[in-house]
Write a protein that binds this DNA or RNA. Sequence first.
DNA 1: CCAGACATTCGATATTGTCGAATGGCTTTC
DNA 2: GAAAGCCATTCGACAATATCGAATGTCTGG
Lengths: 264, 264
Amino acid sequence: MGATREGESVIQSIDRAAKILTLLQGSRRMGITELAAALDLPPSTVHGIVKSLQAHGLVAQQPSGNRYVLGPALLKLSSVYLDTLDVRARSMRWMHELSSRTGLATRLGAELFGEVIVIHHDRRPDGTEQMPETGLTIPSHASALGKVLLAYDAAHAADALSRPLAALTADTVTDPDRVREGLEQVRRDALGFENEEAVIGESSVAAPVCSEDGDVIAAVAVVMPASEWPPSDAVLAELRDAARSISRDLGAPAWPPRPPATAG
Amino acid sequence: MGATREGESVIQSIDRAAKILTLLQGSRRMGITELAAALDLPPSTVHGIVKSLQAHGLVAQQPSGNRYVLGPALLKLSSVYLDTLDVRARSMRWMHELSSRTGLATRLGAELFGEVIVIHHDRRPDGTEQMPETGLTIPSHASALGKVLLAYDAAHAADALSRPLAALTADTVTDPDRVREGLEQVRRDALGFENEEAVIGESSVAAPVCSEDGDVIAAVAVVMPASEWPPSDAVLAELRDAARSISRDLGAPAWPPRPPATAG
DNA sequence: CCAGACATTCGATATTGTCGAATGGCTTTC
DNA sequence: GAAAGCCATTCGACAATATCGAATGTCTGG
């Protein structure tokens, strides 16, 4: 085959397969006709694709019979994916130290298609039960991690701020221009703040993590109950130390990073 | 298209795409020609597939340029996959309680293509740094989780014990028949044991988790340093309680489960 | 017991992925 | 510093392949 139109030259069936995975990612469990309707394709076509995915464990049909869900093979794949991430490996001990010292949960995030995906998560050191957050995605404009990543990555910012911004709480900033204004402060301080903008009762601060060639490739955050807002200077200092240590481990030439020239 | 031969009727390009993902899962980073050689396909064909996967974030090429790795989209997909698992959601609080009471790390595992995949992991409650283990896969024959799952699932056992069993440590049982013998004890006690058979210095005990219709769909384990072997009766009792509680939450009619009739 | 909805199978068709050769970029070697 | 080799990438023709619509089977609800 090959591209019929300019721009895209993706293999049709793989493209459709990926779309099916994305669809299942959104609405947990779907039937064949449901998927077919969503993709505007005949059910038999969708059936063939789903069965092929199922053969590799990428989707599974639940015992109930006629509904499909994402499959266990994805878990193994993602586990290996995480292992390939230098950033994550180098961050873990610093994040654990950061959690211990501040008594707060910490997150490491990177960009994924205009959102932030949590690459590592270290829980608050008290013994309470806490959901694992690795793999979680958060809108960039409503998170401290996201603001930091937006501030240093023009492409990410252009992508994320071009579409309508969702209001997750009453305090979410949904005006792209106001978000952009906030980014200047982030670049100045090398710290991004967020107070109940994503989740009610939860606030966070993030700092950039730089790679060998000086690019901001990730961000670390401390997450705290909104009742503890604003964070003490001690916490901010610990956060900065952690971000600097990780960046240093990665071979970054400098920290804090230089804001991109394009960002005037 | 459709199946040319009996048995399989998977879509070729999707099959190849999945194989590429599996290949990248094994050897972290690979080039196009390397993949092409492994699949015995022309590089141009592989290139097209890889690019299609890349467009959806399922693979990524590392900055270095010419090598491909698994992509971040897998992380989000697996995160949603985990959320769809009833077992996991119901297990979390009981596992956390089990960890707190015993002071040991706990794991929840299910079957994936003849191996065991860790679906949830609750760390030891001391403050030490511990790797997240969710997503890890372990050979069934060398783990307590695996032994339990094998004992109650004939298909899994047939699958897993048909191929050569890897020796992970000096104590790994690699003779299929000896493994099978061990399973009778597992069915009798509803507990599977493993002492340094997978990892040197680490031992574990597992118990079955049953679904609504009485099938064993997962297993819970406590993991301890080999120096603490054998586990106390108190620990075993806590483990049984946790397994029973989870099964009850899932609507299981009975616990311990009845061994399958086929297993005579 | 019947009706409807849905998953699934099957076979013909042409759309589509595949392949081999040619190009371009990069690193290595002498 | 120039050349050679390796590897990713692009292109276009071909026919193998995925797609589609209709028919069948299966389950659920009335």
